[in-house]
Each structure stands twice: as C-alpha cells, then as structure tokens.
C-alpha cells in the first residue's frame, strides 16, 4: 500500500516536473510572432529550379535564365522609392555582368502591384527579365522580405550572397559595394568575404 502510494506520488511528481520544464522551453517570450515571415535561405544552400511567368506572359525557369557563371535574383517593386533609386544601378550592373557570364533576373512578388504597372516599370528601366511571383512562392522559398533584395547564386545555383546592392540609396554616397564584391570574387575564384547584409527597403506585400 505504502509502496504504491510512493510510486504514484513519484510518478505524478516527475510528470509535473517534465511539464514545467517543457513549458519553460516552449515558445515563451521569444515564441510566436517572432522571426522572419518566411524561412530564410542559408548561405551555401542550393536553390532548386523554379518556374515563373515573365511580364510578357512567357514561362521562364531558373534553369533557362541562369548565367554560365552565376545568377543574380533581385526582388523588385514597381512602386518602392528605394528600388526607384537603384533602377539605374541595377541595369548597369546587369549589363556589365551579363557580358561576364552572370545573368540578372528581376522578381516582383508584390501582390498589390498589377501586371500592367509591373510590365511598364520593367520595360522602362530594365533589359533583364522580370518575373511575376504570384502568391509570393519564390519570395517565401528564399526568405525574401523586402525590395530591393538580392540573392546571388553561383554557377551551381548555390547561394553565395544575399542582401543589398551597396550601402547607400544615394549613389554619390556609396562606400561599400557588397554585391559587386561578391560577383567579382566568384568570377575570380575567390571566397565571398561578406555573404549577408541588411538595408532599408520596402517590405514585400505578400498575399493575405
């Protein structure tokens, strides 16, 4: 009788202690609501092929658009003033690096921007293709949160750099050019020194 009671109490005690420990470890203060809205793609991981429609309605894929030596995916917006400030720089870089084997691809994941507006913006500013990411599937896959935001993949579609183009919206004040540093490093077989950066940009308007 006594043994049974002790056993029962010990069992109850350990069960409750386990519950307390679990509640301390469960998402508490840093739980729900914290963290990126999408899973962030880690540096070195491979981006598998995807298919999206471009602004002209033609089906495109990463396999079809990738450069021989690498691919720069840039999340853009037709409305964001930060993107607007970078339009010329993006186009210049795209032309310069296409000649070196690295292709630029624009991706618009904003659910709030109609196709005709995105198309007009793309044809006015870029010669590189712009894809429509309906339902922000690719933004979610890569963990893209804002525009302009760059994902640079090497020849094997491995992510080697993510973040900003450079460190200032005002081109005359730029002192760090992390994207071109990464592009040049890959082209010359060097290690990319800075692999992740942050910058102020317009959050991507995801589908509700």
């Amino acid at each position: 009788m006594r043994k049974h009671l002790i056993f029962a109490l010990a069992l109850a005690l350990s069960t409750l202690l386990l519950a307390v420990t679990a509640s301390a470890q469960a998402p508490g203060p840093n739980g729900a609501g914290v963290g990126p809205s999408a899973t962030t793609r880690s540096i070195g991981s491979t981006v598998t092929d995807f298919t999206l429609v471009d602004v002209n309605g033609a089906e495109q894929s990463l396999a079809k658009l990738k450069g021989e030596k690498g691919t720069v995916l840039i999340f853009i917006s037709a409305r964001c003033p930060v993107v607007k400030a970078y339009n010329e720089r993006m186009e210049q870089l795209a032309k310069e690096y296409k000649a070196k084997g690295i292709n630029f691809v624009g991706i618009n994941s904003n659910s709030s921007e109609p196709l005709d507006e995105v198309k007009a913006h793309a044809s006015a500013h870029y010669t590189f293709p712009v894809l429509i990411d309906k339902g922000n599937k690719i933004a979610d896959r890569l963990g893209a949160e804002h525009t302009p935001e760059v994902y640079f993949l090497d020849a094997n579609n491995r992510l080697v750099y993510r973040g900003r183009i450079d460190n200032n919206r005002d081109q005359s004040l730029v002192s760090k050019r992390e994207l071109t540093d990464a592009l040049d490093a890959v082209l010359t077989g060097k290690v990319v020194a800075v692999t992740e950066t942050a910058a102020v940009g317009c959050s991507i308007r995801r589908v509700e």
Binding site: G35, H146, A199, V200, S203
Partner: peptide
C-alpha cells in the same frame, strides 16, 4: 540580427 531592413517592421 534577424531583421533584414524591410519596413514597416
């Protein structure tokens, strides 16, 4: 450290 700078946040 996990924020990449999109606004609003």
């Amino acid at each position: 450290p996990n924020w990449t700078g999109g606004i609003p946040t």
